[in-house]
């Protein structure tokens, strides 16, 4: 499913001078970001810097208002697309706080998502048997308790189970662009390894990932091609994997000082 309709040479995502408001408050103040196929980007920054806002506005969360700039995804203007259309076009957000859906079975939910995607791509809906088989494989891949897919979506799941369930959904939907919003937060070391493992297995030359994270530790498992530092709504620094290590050693205050000096 992934990457088949990938346009040659064009970036998967191109964000230009993006300004975003929540209510009257400006959160993002001119973001520029280009993500090409096969790349993994890490976006780091302190709390309140706008990391989650960036992930959510790309996914189309209604209360985030784009006041200026553009977001182009696979050659299409994202701001004109409904959230479900973005999803069907292969844009996936792993939520920082996955939502509980009481009474909606995870199995049923994922089947509906897969069918929506397939119908969008002009394919037949998947048979229950075929889907079940596929789901079993993905469940094994992300080392999740098989019982979880028979329960209501995220209801009564532990924090770690919710995060793993997000990775399961990603494995099932095989997105072109995955935005992982603090997927590492609240995970113990074993869960982190499993989640990172899952992400690495889903990495391929035709898709791309953006990891939004506060800490460097997940980057011990997933090596990013680029690290961006977000501060007060702006990307103030871009570098390679070593930037994350430097950040870990010196803290965000160091960036604040240098960014302040540079700006």
């Amino acid at each position: 499913m992934a990457g088949k309709d990938q346009t040659n040479g064009e970036p998967i995502l191109s964000v230009r001078n993006l300004h975003v408001n929540v209510g009257d408050q400006e959160i993002l103040k001119g973001i520029n970001l280009t993500v090409n196929a096969g790349e993994v980007h890490a976006i780091m920054g302190p709390n309140g810097s706008g990391k989650s806002t960036l992930a959510n506005v790309l996914a189309g969360k209604p209360e985030y208002i784009v006041t200026a700039g553009e977001m182009v995804y696979k050659g299409q203007d994202l701001s004109r697309m409904a959230p479900e259309l973005r999803a069907r076009e292969g844009l996936f957000l792993a939520f920082q706080y996955p939502v509980e859906l009481p009474g909606v079975r995870a199995w049923q939910f994922l089947k509906a998502a897969v069918d929506a995607l397939r119908v969008h791509q002009g394919q037949e809906e998947m048979s229950a048997r075929e889907f079940d088989q596929m789901l079993k494989e993905k469940v094994a891949l992300v080392e999740i308790d098989p019982d979880l897919v028979r329960r209501s979506v995220n209801e009564g799941f532990s924090g770690g189970e919710k995060k793993r369930n997000e990775i399961l959904q990603m494995a099932v939907l095989q997105p072109t662009l995955a935005l992982l919003d603090e997927t590492d937060s609240g995970l113990d070391i074993d869960a982190l390894r499993i989640v990172a493992n899952g992400i690495n297995q889903l990495r391929n030359p035709s898709n791309a990932m953006v990891l939004v994270t506060h800490y460097q530790r997940i980057l011990d498992y997933i090596t990013p091609d680029y690290v961006h530092v977000l501060l007060d709504g702006l990307i103030v620094r871009t570098g390679g994997a070593d930037l994350a290590l430097e950040l870990e050693a010196k803290g965000y205050d160091w960036i604040k000082e240098t960014a302040g000096a540079g700006a």
């Binding site: 996914a59 189309g60 969360k61 209604p62 409904a82 959230p83 479900e84 973005r86 999803a87 069907r88 996936f92 957000l93 939520f95 996955p98 939502v99 859906l101 939910f109 994922l110 509906a112 998502a113 929506a116 995607l117 969008h120 959904q169 939907l173």
Partner: peptide, 11 residues
Amino acid sequence: EVFYCQQRGIS
């Protein structure tokens, strides 16, 4: 809840 479903491609 609705946004979560939408993000998974559901109308």
